[in-house]
Simulated assay, not measured.
Amino acid sequence: MFPATSLFAPVEADLKILADNLKQLVGNRHPILYAAAEHLFGAGGKRIRPAIVLLVSRATMQEQDINPCHRRLAEITEMIHTASLVHDDVVDESEIRRSVATVHNIFGNRIAVLAGDFLFAQSSWYLANLNNLEVVKLLSEVIMDLAVGEIQQGLNRLDTSTSLEIYLQKSYYKTASLIANSSKAAGLLSNVTTETAEYIYSYGRHLGLAFQIVDDILDFTSSSSALGKPVGSDLKSGNLTAPVLFALEEKPYLEVLIEREFAQEGDLEQAIALIKNSQGIQKSRELAIKYSKIAVDNIEELTPSQSRQTLINLANYVSSRLE
């Protein structure tokens, strides 16, 4: 869990405004969709993505205050992220998220799919109202990337020949694209130069990849209560992440267990033990640290400020979660 209060101190007040606005943005014209949204946004969550947008906004505005477009972008970012989670949970048949029941578990698949669609549609509408074509293009690409990432994950399910490159591409689509493109969009709303916008994008891309790799490691090394879902649930669903792909290089029997889809009793437990007894977790950790460092190098190109320092601290914190 992110120590949000200490880590996001420069935008703590902004995040409170965001939390209040999110429910209002959904509106109450559709009682069931509103109930679903209230359940989603009420569950809290770490609000990492909108916090990054707000921090980039403040870091690029320097002495000036951020404007309503920056705030709306942060809200749109959280809406897109939440919509993708609703759909992911339906596809993955997840019963819980953030230790609370998923939308489809409470309202059924039909409502969950419609609620996700509704949030995507609402976010697109608010995005168009920013009247900034470049920002619209960036966030529209994110929505496409999320769908491509989910399809790619489904196609690569239980495929032991999946390369690390394919895994990283899928991780970009599913996680890093939103962080990278919304961060860049925040910079564009602050009228930064093209060069600075690319540094911000690269920060978000590498932070997002590090964040996903760390999450994939914690799926094996953390506890069910800390994760808010069962340990090894990604592997059980056939999603082969960095620790698994690295472990496959040195544990041939792991391939046998995966390819028979953990059909025999104790298969999943044995697979988790093989991964833990391999270099898979250590190699994944080294990769996450490498990406965190690249993220820091990029954001250090911005003028020093409290918000820039927080973005640096955030990148360093991502890899420190493994210590």
Rank of each mutant, 00 (worst) to 15 (best):
N105A: 11
H81W: 04
V90R: 02
A128P: 00
K137S: 05
L133S: 09
A115N: 06
W125P: 00
E134N: 05
E78Q: 12
H81E: 12
L85C: 11
D89Q: 06
F118D: 10
R97I: 13
N105R: 15
N129T: 06
A121D: 03
S84Y: 12
A83S: 10
S123Q: 06
I80E: 03
A74R: 10
L114P: 06
R98W: 05
S99D: 09
I80W: 02
D88G: 09
E93T: 09
N129F: 00
L127P: 00
F120M: 08
I76D: 00
T82N: 12
G116D: 09
E78F: 10
T82D: 01
Y126S: 00
A83D: 01
V136F: 10
N132H: 13
S84M: 13
N105I: 00
E134A: 10
K137H: 11
K137V: 02
A112D: 00
N109A: 12
N129G: 14
R97N: 14
V91A: 08
D88H: 06
N132P: 03
D88N: 13
N105T: 15
H104G: 08
V103W: 01
L85S: 05
T77Q: 13
S99N: 14
Q122F: 00
D89T: 03
R98I: 11
L133G: 00
S123F: 11
D88L: 02
A74K: 08
H104D: 03
W125V: 12
L119K: 01
D89M: 06
E95W: 11
V113S: 06
D92H: 08
D117N: 15
V103Q: 02
S123D: 03
F120A: 01
E75C: 15
R98F: 08
L114S: 08
S124T: 12
T102Q: 11
Q122A: 10
F118Y: 14
T82H: 04
L85V: 06
V135S: 00
G108Y: 07
V90I: 15
V90P: 02
D117F: 01
S94A: 15
Y126G: 03
I96D: 05
E134F: 07
F107V: 08
T77L: 06
N131P: 00
